[in-house]
């Protein structure tokens, strides 16, 4: 899939809170239709990187470009148009707690489509059915479990059929079976919708199961130290930090 032109290009990105640099000199491209993994140890700035990619935080330096167009240099209307092509699943779902699941999903539909209320209700129940929550339209986020909230968040992220979906630690706090189901859902979405997917995670199982391409952020050196398909990194990356991460700290010697 790498013969397609790059969809999302990060060049020379430096992220900082005030004077405190989190990561510097990040450059990588995400290709259309790929499942791209952002990995690295805890606290290395994975989620912050996503905040830069979806327009929540402006970079200290460098650019984030969709289809060759720099997001942060564009005007407000252009940015808003770009944001409508993005779907994000937040760590805890981030559902609006004062609205039912159906209302949560209906908000973007009401704002950005010309669908009638009846059509919106149909789309809402379709999206909920896709994530296995058929019949939960009238529940409030506080009334369902954490795993269900996450799936409902995914349904909301998919409301406008986005071109690119961001997942912030999708399997955090899920049991292994639910985490596996979510991985399958991500693969299915990519294959059926043709969406590009960016996943922040440090779950090895899902990294190898779904990742086509990846970037590895190191909190100590404050930059990216590897990129490529996770399976290739496991085989051929020589950096000890990356190897330790991908093998849960187990070296080859201990394995044999």
């Amino acid at each position: 899939m790498t013969d397609l032109p790059p969809y999302l290009q990060i060049s020379d990105l430096t992220m900082a809170y005030g004077d405190f640099v989190i990561q510097r000199d990040l450059s990588f491209t995400i290709h259309r239709g790929d499942i791209f993994i952002i990995m690295g140890g805890s606290g290395c700035g994975k989620s912050t990187l996503v905040r830069h990619m979806v327009g929540l935080k402006a970079p200290a330096r460098g650019t984030v470009a969709y289809d060759g167009m720099s997001f942060w240099d564009a005007n407000a209307a252009e940015r808003a148009r770009q944001l409508r092509r993005i779907g994000i699943l937040y760590q805890s779902g981030a559902l609006w707690s004062s609205m039912t699941l159906a209302e949560n999903i209906a908000v973007p539909l009401e704002a950005y489509t010309i669908l009638s209320p009846a059509d919106i209700a149909d789309v809402v129940s379709l999206k909920l059915a896709l994530v296995g929550l058929a019949g939960f339209e009238d529940y409030y986020p506080a009334e369902i479990s954490g795993g269900m909230r996450k799936r409902a968040g995914l349904a909301r992220a998919m409301a406008l059929d986005p071109d690119i979906l961001f997942f912030d630690e999708p399997s955090a706090g899920l049991d292994p079976v639910s985490a596996k189901l979510l991985d399958d859902l991500i693969l299915e979405l990519r294959d059926s919708l043709g969406a590009t997917v960016v996943v922040v995670t440090h779950e090895l199982a899902s990294i190898f199961a779904i990742g086509d391409d990846s970037v590895f952020l190191d909190p100590d050196r404050k930059t990216m130290i590897a990129q490529g398909a996770p399976k290739d990194l496991l085989r051929s990356c020589e950096d000890p930090t990356v190897q330790a991460f991908l093998r849960r700290g187990v070296t080859d010697k201990e394995r044999s």
Binding site: V54, G55, V107, A111
Partner: peptide, 17 residues
């Protein structure tokens, strides 16, 4: 404030609201 803690305000912003 609670919406901010739950990333609900982020979710609004990234949906263009």
């Amino acid at each position: 404030g609670t919406m901010q803690v739950n990333e609900e305000i982020d979710a609004l912003q990234t949906m263009g609201f």
